[in-house]
Write a protein that binds this DNA or RNA. Structure first.
Length: 515
RNA sequence: GUCCCGUUCGUCUAGCCCGGCCUAGGACUCCAGAUUUUCAUUCUGGCAACACGGGUUCGAAUCCCGUACGGGAUACCA
């Protein structure tokens, strides 16, 4: 075979949501396919009929799309190697099973679950090391078979494993590994109802779909051995396997529901930027380079190699994920950020405002961009802008009570602002102000020409006022911020005043002074 | 029990395959400082690791063996 087109797949079973580990596996397959110039396909392993659901399938597909992992063949796409749902491929498995039966690689097993269990227990008592199916049906005579049939027993089909063959296999991640088949069972391929089990369906489909490389979790390593033997029995070439370690929690144990959100879409709903999640997950067991952590999908594809995936399990660290999110959020322009944040802004901002106050909202968002890491934080952060009066938190109350004279300052400053040239307050139209003044204001930025006072001008007037009344600027600022925003954190005070506009500022200062 | 894999700062990792450039690099976190009207951002500096024991070698994080610890597997789930 001369360099066939590389074909890789992600083969989820729709029995639950797409979790971090699955997403990472999908991503590595995707990245390898793109890096090799091959195809990436999705195959749905829905043979566990009791647990599979369409809802899960939709969640998985949506999660992949959200992360920017697109597929060339599979659900919603079709392709020349379909069908891509295993339950639609039953005749293919039946045909392969018949071939195996005919070639003596498989045999019918009439054992009941209870009998199998009893056999296993007996082997355990002999403490032979490995305890599995006792292979009772492996060498049944024709007469014995018909006797079982006569009892009405329906046989499973089992694969006949070599008794004690040493296999030298090469794994793209693990390297050369030696495995003795005596550690392996005669495993069940097909149920009486014709529904295949994982290992069997997987191989039939990997052959049928011309898969060349398989990246999957290390829990499949031994399955890989069974599968190699099946490829051999079917006279097909085995794909290159890469078995990667699982994602661990903070304690180094397998990641579970308690440790992190199990559903990729939970991250979406909380406003984690998908690029950041993608970037972070990629880093769990793989490194872009010695000195860079932040990279795009394209940059990853340009350098990705399956062999560079680490052999050791990586722990999921939400703090670094958060940092990564902030890293992406800060790189957006305020306009881009506004677009992204819209679903969360909508919880406090009336829908109409997105067109009527686009420039203002862009400034609001701009002011918080470097203060958040995930988009849902916007919801709580910007509420004060829309309230009649802000709710004072503990720090704000303290800052208002600190200086006895501060109420006079606030009253005085209210007067200054009232007479000043501030933009109007929400919900009045203030496009003339926001369209020309881009927040957050930068120290060394050229002063824009504006019909209203700019933050820089507001600051100038403020400093002049504090001088007039003989108050240290640094002291003055705190009660003002408290009165205006209800807290001690937030954007620059003069951006706040600009954003709030005249009426709101005056109202808030006077209300705080009157407390 | 048996088999397989792994082990570099608290965490993610670079280096390991092809021993010397490693007084082990980067990032997150943390601490200190600078900037500053708060917070945040940004910048500067700092703390902090080759699991342990043998061996090979002039020389080992890098090669070999063992021990310990961790993970995975051992289904009519995938």
């Amino acid at each position: 075979m001369i360099h066939p087109t590389p074909r890789l797949r992600f083969a989820p079973s729709p029995t639950g949501p797409l979790h971090l580990g699955g997403a990472r596996t999908a991503m590595y397959n995707w990245a390898a396919a793109r890096a090799l110039g091959g195809k990436f396909l999705l195959r749905i392993e829905d043979t566990d009929q009791a647990r599979s659901s369409d809802a899960s399938l939709q969640i998985i597909l949506t999660g992949l799309k959200w992360l920017g992992i697109d597929w060339d063949e599979g659900p919603e796409k079709g392709g020349d190697f379909g069908p891509y749902f295993q339950m639609q491929r039953l005749p293919l498995y039946r045909a392969a099973a018949d071939r195996l039966l005919a070639s003596g690689h498989a045999y019918p097993c009439y054992c009941t679950p209870e009998e199998i269990d009893a056999g296993r227990k007996a082997m355990e008592e002999q403490k032979a090391g490995f305890a599995g199916y006792n292979r009772r049906c492996r060498n049944l005579t024709a007469a014995e078979r018909s006797a079982f049939e006569a009892q009405g027993r329906k046989p499973n089909l089992r694969f006949k494993m070599p008794e004690a063959r040493v296999l030298q296999v090469h794994d793209l991640v693990r390297g050369d590994v030696e495995v003795n088949t005596k550690e392996l069972d005669d495993w069940v391929m097909l149920r009486p109802d014709g529904v295949p089990l994982y290992n069997f369906a997987c191989v039939v489909d990997d052959i049928g779909m011309a898969i060349t490389h398989v990246v999957r979790g290390e829990e499949h390593f031994l399955n890989g051995i069974k599968q190699r033997l099946l490829f051999e029995a079917l006279g097909a070439e085995c794909p290159q396997y890469a078995h990667i370690p699982l994602i661990l929690n903070k304690e180094g144990k397998k990641l579970s529901k308690r440790d992190a959100d199990t559903n990729m879409l939970d991250y979406r709903d909380k406003g984690f930027p998908p690029e950041a999640v993608f970037n972070y997950i990629a880093l769990l067991g793989w490194g872009f380079s010695g000195d860079r952590d932040v990279f795009t999908r394209d940059e990853m594809v340009a350098v990705f190699q399956i062999g560079n995936i680490g052999k050791a399990g990586a722990r999921f660290d939400e703090e670094k994920l958060r940092w990564m999110c902030g890293e992406y959020v800060r790189r957006w322009t305020p306009a881009q950020c506004l677009e992204r944040a819209r679903p969360w802004l909508s919880r406090v901002v009336p829908e109409a405002a997105f067109s009527s106050h686009a420039a203002w909202l862009r400034n609001v968002v701009g002011c918080y961009q470097e203060r958040i890491t995930i988009l849902s934080e916007f919801t709580d952060k910007i509420g004060w802008l829309f309230a009649e009066l802000p709710t004072l938190d503990e720090a704000a109350q303290k800052n208002l009570a600190k200086e006895p004279a501060s109420k006079d300052w606030l009253r005085g400053y209210a007067e200054v602002l009232e007479k000043g040239n501030l933009p109007p307050s929400w919900p009045a139209d203030r496009t003339a102000a926001d369209a020309v003044v881009a927040l957050p204001s930068k120290k060394d930025a050229a002063a824009p020409t504006c019909a209203f006072a700019t933050p820089a001008q507001i600051e100038q007037e403020c400093r002049a006022f504090t001088e007039r009344i003989g108050v240290k600027f640094g002291n003055f600022v705190h009660p003002v911020r408290a009165a205006l925003t209800g807290t001690d954190k937030g954007p620059g005070l003069f951006d706040v005043i600009f954003l709030l506009g005249r009426e709101a500022c005056v109202r808030r200062l006077r209300a705080a002074a009157a407390r």
